[in-house]
Write a protein that binds this DNA or RNA. Structure first.
Lengths: 349, 349
DNA sequence: AATGTCCATTTAACCGGTTAACTATATGAT
DNA sequence: ATCATATAGTTAACCGGTTAAATGGACATT
């Protein structure tokens, strides 16, 4: 059961290996229709499947894309428990496969060592989700391959960006609370890092407050990690220490779900006592109790868009001058986790 | 910025490329300590990173593992919305990376064409999650690489299996209902396919019923697709057509969450009116309302175990005679979605 | 001194493709 | 008839490693 090589095909077709290679790669005007036919037939009959390693070695194209997601520091595992990443990956994988590319999925925490992977595998490009320390981006630049960033605002001429208007998202959520008569609005969020998405959402939050003439209260910002558990903890804090708060904007649905649970643990009803808005509209947002009002981004489409962008850059060989950031649409989805305080004068249960 | 090759290292160290290769691959007794030192230093100084394509071409080892998960037929996207797969992948990725392997994640529906991927990339092995049509397994056998199956019972001498005792899981869930005084217990499940996991869970369900002297009622089995939406639909059916049912065993947490929502849509409370048990203990099982009683399997560990098993098979070159199936532990986690009918004589709200 | 062994090292073929450069033939222009 | 050009196909070097076989030197044996 030896492997069928291009030589086998060339012999069977009665031509040189070069001819076979030209036919199989669709080189224009290098081969006659007759030869094309012979080669196609021979390849078909032998069920020839090219070896990507050999191909990669010869022409320095691996058809391999690195996909990076954050990982937990302690357990060295992918942060895939946040469905946000899963959904992105669905989109990315589907689009890549469609063009004959494959995806190598890796977790990264500090970003050290990823450059090795990229070199070893001769990656044609990479999609980086999440935000990392500066040095990682420096390494990525050295890699000299097209790179698409999702969820970080490192606007550098080396990087393509497929983002959303996070500032607007933060604004819309906060505004929605204000429109519903809320004035004490908490923000529950992961670490606010420079160039990260939550920084922008935070900015939008502040803008909405300011625009409405509301006071920005730093104590009402609960900042830690993007986990269900922290959402829960923040909710407890809110109930016990800041009872004036009637609305919580969580910068990810996962945290929002934690907030929901935390409030419940403390005997508060949503939205009767406290209203909650999330971010992302991951699929479980509509499944929780009550269904979560959230800022929707079409995550799967965003994954597809990121892959598309990357493929384009690869095929153009334009790793240098990326187009300007693609900004995907965004909107607030009203479900049942927000109560209208102004109109509804029902007494609290 | 040319690539550093083994030749560069050999020149710098003043030895042949063969010597470098031997040192870097730790060939015993082929090189003197002196040479080892020189090579190590040179490689270090040049920051040499080997090219896996070249290596793969030369020794037919790619250090690449194929990881396959089902995909939706319509949209050609990975079934990653079920966190069960995400969690497995977390475990797999972590373990593979630890040993210098990388993972190519692909979606597959009918299984056609995957064999091509495997050939093109010279995969060293594969981990297959989910269940597929017969022909896919036939293809896999031809691939002549170690393969680990998760979630299918194709006990063939070609395949390694890292499973759980699904029959027991089904039994435990059903038994728990019975112990709590339930006698009309519905089963909500994806398609019951031969050699699939749900077939076994179904068997466990029937065994528990029989053991308790309860009548197995085929109408109480709701079988369709493993989705939140179907769980919801099944719940509606149950409430409207089979009001005698007081307990629902869903064979995946995702479906169980749909059931929860469907019951709520119909104005039923869980567990006051209807009790629910899920399967898998995905992370959101404890996050939903009420927290879901479920059959816990440590999914991440199972991913790790699968990877471990595969690596072992690869390193032994033993693609032929797999050890017997590894069966991971299982237990019922009691949360708040089951009501005890027998002891608790509170009137229904 | 000749021969055999061992050890460390090198040589060079090989993996399976791609592609620049070359050859051979046909076509067209002068 | 001669030369230039275009077209179709081939040759062989090359990508960056691995590894069987050959080499060469040191040492021991007869």
């Amino acid at each position: 059961m030896k492997r069928i090589t291009i030589r086998d095909v060339s012999e069977r077709a009665g031509v040189s290996t070069a001819a076979v290679s030209y036919v199989l790669n669709g080189r224009e005007g290098k081969v006659s229709p007759d030869t094309i036919l012979k080669v196609r037939r021979a390849a078909e009959e032998l069920n020839y499947i090219p070896d990507f390693s050999a191909r990669s070695l010869a022409n320095n194209k691996s058809k391999l894309i690195g996909v990076v997601i954050p990982q937990t520091e302690e357990r060295k595992q992918l942060l895939l428990q946040n469905p946000f990443y899963s959904e992105l990956i669905c989109g990315i994988e589907a689009r890549l496969r469609q063009s004959g590319y494959h995806m190598i999925l890796s977790g990264v925490d500090k970003g050290e060592g990823y450059i090795d992977t990229s070199m070893q595998r001769n990656l044609d490009g990479a999609i980086i989700m999440g935000i990392y320390q500066e040095s990682f981006y420096e390494d990525l630049k050295k890699a000299k391959m097209p790179i698409v960033l999702i969820d970080s605002y490192v606007y550098d001429s080396h990087f393509h960006v497929v983002g959303i208007d996070d500032e607007l998202g933060g604004y819309l959520a906060t505004k929605h609370f204000i429109d519903n008569g809320h004035t004490n609005i908490a923000l529950v969020t992961g670490m606010i890092r420079k160039d990260g998405v939550v920084e922008k959402r935070f900015l939008g939050y502040k803008r909405a407050l300011k625009e409405a003439g509301l006071f920005y209260h730093p104590d009402h910002v609960f900042e830690h990690s993007v986990t269900y558990e922290y959402g829960q903890e923040a909710a407890r804090l809110i109930v016990t220490k800041y009872p004036e708060i009637t609305a919580v904007f969580a910068t990810s649905d996962l945290m929002a779900m934690g907030v929901l649970q935390g409030l419940r643990d403390e005997g508060k009803e949503v939205p009767e006592h406290v209203s909650v808005i999330g971010f992302d509209d991951i699929s479980i947002a509509r499944m929780c109790t009550p269904p979560l009002t959230t800022i929707m981004q079409d995550t799967v489409s965003r994954g597809i868009a990121a892959a598309e962008r990357l493929l384009l850059a690869i095929e153009n060989g334009s790793s240098d001058h990326p187009a300007e950031p693609a900004i995907m649409p965004l909107k607030l989805i009203e479900r049942e986790s927000v109560r209208n305080l102004s109109m509804n004068s029902d007494p609290i249960l």
